[in-house]
Computed example of a mutant assay.
Amino acid sequence: MKESSKIVKVKKNNEGDITDVMLQNGTIYPIKEAIMMAKENKIEGVNVGKAKNGREFLRSDPNGYESDNLDNLPTFN
């Protein structure tokens, strides 16, 4: 069984939406794949939310710290 990994960096589009994530091991995944991985508990520290329009999105598990929220992580190109 493969261990879960944390998201350490994110890539955003011009609107500020996260399009890709980078895990601790340097592997990059598109956001849709990362959402599927989070559902399978392959990414730690995140869960899948659902917007009012039905679109799924990744969000950090609540812990009282804003510094590790996905929007506040370092970005990559």
Rank of each mutant, 00 (worst) to 15 (best):
G26Q: 06
I31F: 09
E15V: 03
I43R: 01
D68I: 04
G54R: 07
M36N: 15
K9C: 07
K42M: 15
Q24A: 03
D20V: 01
L23R: 07
V48S: 03
D61I: 09
D20H: 09
G64H: 09
M36F: 15
E15D: 06
V10K: 00
G54E: 08
E15H: 04
S67V: 12
M1Y: 11
G45R: 03
S60M: 10
T75L: 03
V48Y: 01
V46C: 03
E3D: 15
D68G: 01
D20P: 02
E44M: 12
G64V: 10
K42G: 14
Y29A: 05
M1F: 14
G64N: 09
L58F: 08
E66D: 12
A51D: 15
N41P: 09
L23F: 14
T19G: 07
L23M: 11
K50F: 07
D71S: 12
I18E: 06
E56D: 14
I18L: 02
R59Q: 15
P74R: 00
E66S: 13
N72G: 06
E33S: 10
L70N: 02
L58A: 06
G26L: 05
K9T: 05
L73R: 02
K52S: 15
M1D: 06
G64W: 08
M36E: 14
N72W: 04
A51G: 15
K42N: 13
R59D: 13
D71A: 11
G45H: 07
S4I: 04
S5A: 13
I43G: 04
P30D: 11
N25P: 04
M22V: 00
V48W: 03
N47Y: 15
N25H: 10
K32C: 14
G26I: 06
I31A: 10
N63C: 12
T27L: 05
F57D: 06
D68C: 03
R55T: 06
D17L: 10
K42D: 12
N53Q: 09
T75F: 02
S67T: 11
G54Y: 14
K42I: 12
N72C: 08
T75Y: 02
